[in-house]
Simulated scan of single mutants.
Amino acid sequence: MSSSRRQFIAFGLGALASASLPRAFAAAPTTLLRAADVHIDGYPTVEAVRWIGRYLRERTDGRLDTLAYHSGQLGRESVTVDLARFNALALTRVYLASMNDSVPSTRILSLPFLIDSTEHLRRVLDGQLGRALLADFQRRDLVGLAFYDSGSRNLYNTQRPIHEPADMQGLKLRVPVSEVFVRLVHALGANATPLPFGEIFSALQTRLIDGAENNIKSFQSSRHYEVAHYWSESRHTYTPDVLLMSQKAYEALAPADRELVREAAAASVPYMRGLWDQAEAAAAKAVFAAEVRANQVDRESMRRATDPVSREYLGDAGLAKLFEYVREAM
């Protein structure tokens, strides 16, 4: 465990032990909203949280600010979610699929081949469905502040190109810790191995897994392309990231400051999207200039293979209603 993580956890445990902390914290000259992210320094989501800090500083004369812990310094996403739930951390950015099992309504955005493009996703997130999903995090003692782009998810591995489901037979693929993704990969004929994001590189090196699925930016920034040389453009989901806040940390703020935090988070979305579009293009250029062999997949054959997964989930009345919002945004 890194020294920064030990220091932070010690801080968080000390904070939890003090019943008077919310008042003292809110009354301090500068309130630092500490934020966690597993992605590296400079990643668009990390920079978006820093942008929120600048926004808050400018509008409160430095009374509110953010402090970003990047590169998984505070642990994997499941750890940072728990830290936020118990008020040892103010903010955490996580991949939405990691919340599929604890907040079932989020499964709608992980269903395969449901979202057609980045533009479609943004229309969905900016509308009624996005607002409804953010509100649902309250059931986990969290405040949903904003959705951030995470690009299209594609397949990559160390063994061979993937053109159709038959090419996935026997492959061991890492997936997020999400029932939807496990079933998706099984439907395509591969063996799903749920692992935290930070463990993928070593798992590829040691051949614990043959590959994974992710966006091109994460494929590049995590250096997975140095080990897995086959990239297959499947675009099977466009599941986004989500910025969450501790409900207790949120309630400890004055009402005007709560609104300001929400305002800052909403205003950070177009900023993050601009960074994302640039980063995605740069990542693709870097990866395909290296020893990566890229190919298109037969998306229709993959859609047919995964249709039973989607149909079963959409048998739930709540998800079926959310599905209509997705269709309306097409």
Score class of each variant (00 low, 15 high):
Ala84His: 00
Ser3Thr: 08
Arg23Thr: 11
Pro104Tyr: 09
Ile9Trp: 06
Pro112Tyr: 11
His70Asn: 03
Asp136Thr: 04
Phe288Thr: 04
Ser222Leu: 10
Arg131Trp: 10
Arg59Val: 07
Leu109Gln: 13
Asp61Trp: 06
Gln296Asn: 02
Asn157Thr: 09
Glu291Arg: 09
Leu64Cys: 01
Ala84Thr: 02
Met168Cys: 06
Gln128Arg: 12
Ala192Tyr: 12
Pro196Arg: 15
Gly127Gln: 08
Asp116Thr: 06
Trp51Met: 05
His120Ser: 04
Arg54Gly: 08
Ile162Lys: 12
Ser246Trp: 09
Pro270Arg: 05
Arg153Trp: 14
Arg273Leu: 14
Arg293Leu: 05
Lys217Glu: 15
Leu16Pro: 04
Thr193Leu: 07
Pro104Cys: 07
Leu314Asn: 15
Val46Thr: 07
Glu226Lys: 03
Phe219Trp: 03
Asp37Trp: 00
Val49Trp: 01
Glu164Trp: 02
Glu47Gln: 11
Val38Met: 02
Ala190Cys: 05
Glu259Gly: 13
Thr158Glu: 10
Phe25Asp: 11
Lys285Met: 11
Ser221Arg: 15
Leu314Cys: 14
Asp126His: 11
Pro44Thr: 04
Thr80Asp: 00
Ser2Arg: 04
Ala27Ser: 12
Gly42Pro: 03
Asn295Ala: 03
Ser117Val: 03
Arg123Trp: 01
Glu324His: 12
Ala282Pro: 13
Leu173Val: 13
Ala252His: 03
Arg63Trp: 01
Arg311His: 13
Ala97Asn: 14
Ser178Glu: 08
Arg123Met: 04
Arg304Val: 15
Asp257Pro: 00
Arg223Met: 12
Leu125Val: 06
Pro104Arg: 10
Gly42Ser: 09
Glu179Ala: 14
Glu77Val: 05
Leu134Cys: 05
Ser110His: 09
Leu129Phe: 07
Val309Ser: 15
Ala254Met: 10
Leu195Ser: 14
Thr158Ile: 10
Gly72His: 02
Tyr148Leu: 14
Val79Tyr: 01
Phe113Leu: 13
Val242Met: 01
Leu142Glu: 01
Ala146Pro: 06
Ala36Phe: 00
Leu142Gly: 00
Pro255Arg: 06
Ser71Leu: 05
Asn154Trp: 07
Thr66Arg: 03
Val182Tyr: 15
Val261Arg: 13
Leu184Ile: 13
Ala24Asn: 15
Ala90His: 00
Arg59Leu: 04
Phe197Pro: 00
Tyr250Asn: 09
Leu13Gln: 13
Phe8Tyr: 06
Ser18Arg: 05
Ala281Phe: 11
Leu253Trp: 02
Phe201Pro: 02
Arg63Asn: 00
Pro196Leu: 11
Glu280Arg: 15
Arg303Pro: 07
Ala35Arg: 01
Ser18Pro: 02
Glu77Gln: 09
Ala84Gln: 00
Glu119Asn: 07
Leu195Pro: 06
Ile200Leu: 09
Leu83Lys: 00
Ala146Lys: 10
Ala146Val: 09
Leu142Ile: 03
Ser98Cys: 08
His224Thr: 09
Leu243Gly: 03
Gly14Phe: 07
Arg139Leu: 12
Trp276Arg: 08
Leu133Cys: 15
Ile9His: 03
Ser232Met: 02
Ala166Gly: 08
Val261Ala: 15
Ser246Tyr: 12
Gly72Val: 05
Glu179His: 06
Val79Leu: 08
Asp116Pro: 00
Glu280Gln: 12
Asn295Thr: 01
Asp316Met: 10
Glu58Arg: 08
Asn191Phe: 13
Thr92Gln: 01
Leu204Trp: 07
Met99Ala: 12
Val49Glu: 00
Glu77Tyr: 04
Thr106Ser: 12
